[in-house]
Write a protein that binds this DNA or RNA. Sequence first.
DNA 1: CCTTTTCCATTCATTTATGAATATCACGAC
DNA 2: GTCGTGATATTCATAAATGAATGGAAAAGG
Lengths: 298, 298
Amino acid sequence: MEKAFSNLDWSLIQSFLVVAETGSLSGAARQLNASQPTLGRHIKTLEDTLKVEVFHRHARGFELTDTGQALLAPAQRMAAAMADLSLAAAGGETDLAGTVRISSSIFMAHHVMPGILADLRQQEPQIQIELVPSDQSQNLLFREADIAVRMYRPEQLDMITKHLGDIELGMFAAESYIARKGRPTGADDLPHHDIVGYDANDEIIREMRGMGIPADRDWFAVRCDHQTTYWELVRAGCGLGFCQSHIARQTPGIEEINIDFPIPHLPVWLTAHESLRHTPRISRVWTHLESALKPFVS
Amino acid sequence: MEKAFSNLDWSLIQSFLVVAETGSLSGAARQLNASQPTLGRHIKTLEDTLKVEVFHRHARGFELTDTGQALLAPAQRMAAAMADLSLAAAGGETDLAGTVRISSSIFMAHHVMPGILADLRQQEPQIQIELVPSDQSQNLLFREADIAVRMYRPEQLDMITKHLGDIELGMFAAESYIARKGRPTGADDLPHHDIVGYDANDEIIREMRGMGIPADRDWFAVRCDHQTTYWELVRAGCGLGFCQSHIARQTPGIEEINIDFPIPHLPVWLTAHESLRHTPRISRVWTHLESALKPFVS
DNA sequence: CCTTTTCCATTCATTTATGAATATCACGAC
DNA sequence: GTCGTGATATTCATAAATGAATGGAAAAGG
């Protein structure tokens, strides 16, 4: 009844997987908080035990062999199961103390979260907070975060979500810009203005076209994908820009531009994995975020 | 992008799973070729890291808590993925040398396999053989064996199978029995004889009923589930018994009983996991078994 | 062509994990 | 009640895994 592979340490597979994904021992070592020689030995032990070469060595790093490729899928299934296990374990925790990882957009993380989290820390000093500012959506299934604040409806399964409301967006410009180019008189006037745009994300263009404005990528003379930097470009007078009204109105040197087309609102969703719903520290942070974000989604 | 649980060593889950399944540290230690204190520490580390109690300790051993129950399923998924990985790795081996685990019925293992394996060892000294005599079907998906010799058509998926032919069964009796009770004259005469039967497995009874013989469990005054011991009971003169004709005819002191009802044949199937099909040592053993078993399935 | 960077392999002192031995406890049999 | 069995905890000497440091080699950038 004993199994032929039971002598093989599962942690070797863990190392294998990360090396396969990063393509280097050094990279894997950084990710696993281990050292490069350790990872090298793990791979060597794995290969010796399985009597199979799983990596081609070359100067730039490690590359999977065909055999190694075949091992990748089951190794990933192990990792997925491990993630499930981790979630299940967190769901069983009873202690309020611990760390909660919150993911939010870079803009929110920069302008909104600090105050909210400072309050929370004061109320619950036992709870440590790790803020993960990121505009790529974090994968909550792999617990890259415990709670996510998102500007769109989350699609992942097994999640609990709550729509907190909508954030009002507006068009703004720096005083320096207005001094130079004047205020746009209306939508028709926009082509004569500079608008700070997003580079990869053509959300704005699609929105404007949806409203009958013949927007074009070339309109946007200055573009930036990074939300907080985007806002700095607007503040520096590079052009008109969109921003959460609540924040923009508190920014000195910025004026609101009222134009005759409606700007869509930004929905705010709170998300967490359902198996964490009853974990004390998670639910505590959840309710805090819920109430603390309310003023922003009026 | 880093994951919250990446600091948790997967081998702890491995230990957790075996402790959960065996219900004791000592049992798990035996199965994993480790020591009881090691397993104890692994569980403790796991619980400390997850901040969750996964086992109730009591004098008789370890029992899963509710939280631990929740971790069991993902841990088993990890084990299943590990089994897949092990299979995939074995499929990538290129070396002829290595160990092949062969599962067969206890009877075959006792009377047939030794000679076949002795030949094989002489031809391929590089290949080590581990024979797993068992009347429960081994789970090839978990690599409890690499190749199985079975007396029925295997049902598991992802298997390659070959029907080698059928083994002739016959009814036999020890000379001592015949001297005492005489030979049965036909099927009608059977109720006046002792037949050595199987206990749990009522295969024989079902077969005889299928042929219109009103067989009953009570006919079988002596019963034994264990095939080789069964045969020793027949040799000792406990009663009539069924056996592979090929073997029985070579047994001194045993005579064949010809009766007027047909005795079914025993199909012989060779089975292996398909991902091992091209592994040199496995396919070498496979072809050897195939040809060496031929004389038995004429 | 030379420099810089980024890898991997190796070495060796050190930390960490391990297991034999032992103490202790609970249960069941006699 | 007592003894035997089989379990978990604890201790401590030892074995094993680890990581900082070093050397070397190959690609990328000037």
